[in-house]
């Protein structure tokens, strides 16, 4: 086990290392030669046309249905960590409990499926 001070010195070394890498990249770019500022170079382009359209738009995320389902089921995973900690103590009952919990969740998924939640909008 490292002492707290040692751990902090490691963190400091990491930070310094990252800073040094970034500075080295800048130094290298400078040594290779200055960048040439030209029109059209720093504008995004798509397929042979500059794209100056406003970027602040309301994008239709058609996968939001799945995204919400995923989030819901992903959050349930959080309950499994404390369950795993006490699993040995509680024994087989814990397995049944979790089985019931997951079965309910699974029913929810089946219901969502039947309602077309997994179909593309």
């Amino acid at each position: 086990m490292m002492s707290v001070l040692e751990q902090y010195s490691l963190l400091l070394a990491l930070v310094l290392g990252i800073a040094a890498t970034v500075l080295a990249l800048y130094g290298l770019a400078r040594a290779i030669g200055p960048a040439h500022r030209e029109p059209g170079k720093d504008v995004p382009a798509s397929s042979g046309a500059l794209s100056r359209d406003p970027v602040w738009g309301r994008y239709h995320a058609r996968y939001y249905g799945y995204a919400l389902l995923f989030l819901a089921f992903d959050m349930e995973m959080a309950f499994m960590y404390p369950w795993a900690v006490v699993y040995r103590e509680v024994g087989l009952v814990a397995l049944y409990d979790m089985g019931v919990f997951l079965a309910i969740l699974f029913l929810g998924l089946l219901y969502g499926w039947s309602q077309g939640a997994l179909r593309r909008q």
Binding site: S46, S47, G48, A49, G57, R58, Y59, H60, Q121
Partner: peptide
Amino acid sequence: SADGLAMDWMEVPFGPVF
């Protein structure tokens, strides 16, 4: 949109060198 949501429509060129 078809689902009644008000969204930005973008006109995007694919080509002439896509």
